[in-house]
Amino acid sequence: MYGWIWRHLPGNAWVRALLSLVLVLAVVYVLFQYVFPWAEPLLPFNDVTVDNQ
């Protein structure tokens, strides 16, 4: 999977490393901005009220 991505990135090793870093940062950004805020309320830490509003 990662080998496949690496082989399909353009440029030499340095350019590929840089592009991989950008890809990783993009994935982390999407996770923190969209995926985790969606998943977090499914955990019980938000239940602090007595009437479950």
Binding site: M1, Y2, V28, F36, E40
Partner: peptide
């Protein structure tokens, strides 16, 4: 084998990131 191990590593990384999000980033 390689794909399965890569998926395991990805899942582990995801979990660590999620814990970091819940504990620290919130």
């Amino acid at each position: 084998v390689r794909t399965v191990s890569e998926l395991c590593i990805t899942a582990g990384t995801l979990i660590v990131l999620f814990v970091a999000y819940v504990l620290f980033w919130t």
